[in-house]
């Protein structure tokens, strides 16, 4: 069983607004409503690959109910901690004319110390049957990066591998707990921990630095995925993808990588399947791949280049 942790799930509303303009009236062409939050997306794609998935996180009323129902409809088992506030709704505005993507995100419900304790109890119970844990996404108010680090520590203490995809403060707090694979969330970032993300060599240096703590590290920026472990390093180019694909590219990458890790693939194969997943997702209207055939169909397009 794969356990996905989405501490701050969301309902994602994607508006398509041709010629979108700030400060004026805009007419929506279409609206899509999807369950969201990085861990939720990864879980849905792992389920599409045939894995047994249990999804955890904090869920409030309203949108939280929608997210859980959508997960269960996909055949995923839910084990969310019920909180009093409302799960957030995130908005994305796609302007097909201008080729722009505008995102507006909410912070999420306030999480109490009791909620944290309840979550931890469920998490520890589920670790007993988990073969891999995916922790991905942002933290709602009341959840500190150290909580995330604790989740990584609890899993690695039981020899359960963790894939972590999160922003810098969470990553920095959690790296000492040694996740099996660490991928910093670099969306809308030009630098990370002093490394210039526009420069290939600096990105590689960042990946190597992360891999000193984690078992392996992934740096995905500037249409290139760098995958590094203690004794191997690979670069894989990721072609530019459509606006919808861009929202969930990392999530598809992670789902593909986790699938390959569970199959016992070597680092190069983990990277190959991850990027194939990303390509498959980028080519789908929802930004997610929906079957193993989708991913396998993209494997041949992925070129994995060893890096010295």
């Amino acid at each position: 069983m794969i356990l996905t942790v989405t501490l701050n799930p969301s309902v994602d509303k994607v508006f398509e607004v041709p010629s979108f303009g700030l400060g004026r009236f805009n007419q929506v062409e279409s609206i899509e409503t999807q369950p969201g939050g990085k861990g939720v997306n990864v879980g849905l794609m792992l389920r599409a690959l045939g894995h047994e998935v249990v999804a955890m996180g904090f869920a409030g009323d309203g949108p939280g109910r929608f997210v859980q129902n959508a997960l269960r409809d996909a055949g995923i088992t839910t084990a969310f901690t019920v909180v009093n506030g409302k799960t957030r709704t995130n908005y994305a505005i796609i302007d097909p004319d201008a080729g722009t993507l505008t995102q507006v995100h909410q912070t999420g419900p306030e999480i109490s110390p009791d909620d944290l304790a309840a979550f931890r109890t469920t998490y520890e119970r589920l670790l007993g049957t988990a073969e891999h844990v995916v922790i991905a996404g942002s933290l709602p108010p009341g959840v500190e990066p150290t909580f995330c680090a604790e989740l990584v520590r609890l899993a690695t203490a039981r020899d359960v591998r963790v894939t972590l995809n999160a922003r810098e403060p969470i990553m920095a707090a959690s790296l000492p707990a040694r996740p099996f694979l660490a991928e910093p969330d670099l969306r809308n970032r030009e630098s990370y921990d002093g490394f210039d993300l526009t420069d290939h060599d600096e990105r590689l240096a960042l990946a190597r630095t992360l891999a000193e703590s984690a078992g392996s590290a992934v740096v995905n920026a500037e249409h290139e995925v760098l995958l590094v472990s203690a004794d191997e390093a690979y670069a894989i180019s990721v072609p530019t993808c459509g606006l919808r694909g861009r929202i969930r590219l990392d999530d598809a990458l992670i789902a593909g990588m986790v699938d390959a890790m569970i199959a016992g693939g070597a680092l190069a194969e983990i990277g190959r399947e991850g990027v194939a997943g990303a390509l498959a997702a980028a080519g789908s209207p929802t930004g997610q791949f929906t079957s193993r055939a989708d991913v396998e169909g993209c494997l041949a397009r992925v070129e994995v280049v060893p890096v010295a």
Binding site: V54, D61, Q68, R72, G75, I76, T77, T78, A79, F80, V82, N84, D114, A118, T121, T122, L126
Partner: peptide, 24 residues
């Protein structure tokens, strides 16, 4: 079946159980 694992522990407060019944 409903594939949800929301559950109580022996030491869960009755007050918390009531909150869960209400929310869910």
């Amino acid at each position: 079946m409903t594939r949800d694992l929301t559950a109580l522990s022996r030491d869960t407060a009755l007050r918390e159980a009531a909150r869960l019944f209400s929310m869910l």
